[in-house]
Amino acid sequence: MIVVEGLWKSYGDRSVLERLNLTIREGEFVTLVGASGCGKTTFLRILLGDERPTKGRLTLDGRPLRPEPGPDRGVVFQRYSVFPHLTVLQNAMLGLEFQSGGPLGRLRGRAWQEARARASALLAEVGLAHVADAWPSALSGGMQQRLALAQALVLEPRLLLLDEPFGALDPGIRIDMHQLISKLWHATGMTVVMVTHDLGEAFKLGTRVLTFDKVRHDRQAPERYGATITYDLRGRARPLLPA
């Protein structure tokens, strides 16, 4: 369970987020929507640990969230989510190699073979088994995002953060990706927080849709007040656990 209490974020005089309170239960699929620059991505990056809140408390299962990214939180960005110098399979294995490969981050022998088997299974699940030895740059945008998902899921994070992961994809590919992410969410039972521009996508995939907007305005200084959560709506996706 993630609890956010009285969170503020500002850069100098510019407020981005203010008075943000939120509780996300285990296994929810939360989508964040709002106009460009409304702070939804900033909020996601705070959850990720890549940004720190100016004020407020953030706890994961009662403990303060570590202020840097870690293996408890997986992430998929819109771009640059996979490593160009590693093949598809190596990308999918990387998490396991970091986790148990010692200071150099390399596995050998049996451990390497086991890691490869796990990564291969995951690649098969996201439909990339046939391109395991290709470089990511040879893949289409949709396939790269599939790889990014597989890579993030190999460590089985309890929280998966998605920053407009399908924003750059063609509409047809997007629908395939929706099916994939729903399937993976059901299979793992992880909590998902996704930022998107696409309202249809937000309601289709999410059990819960949060809209970000400013409630206070200062005409002389439009950047004085930040955004907060204005609506907390039910999405069309069926929750994994009964409420």
Binding site: P71, F77, Y80, P103, L104, V154, L155
Partner: peptide
Amino acid sequence: LLVKAQTLGASTLQ
């Protein structure tokens, strides 16, 4: 890329 690597549990050296 650097953030992604951190979410995969990588240390600075890794």
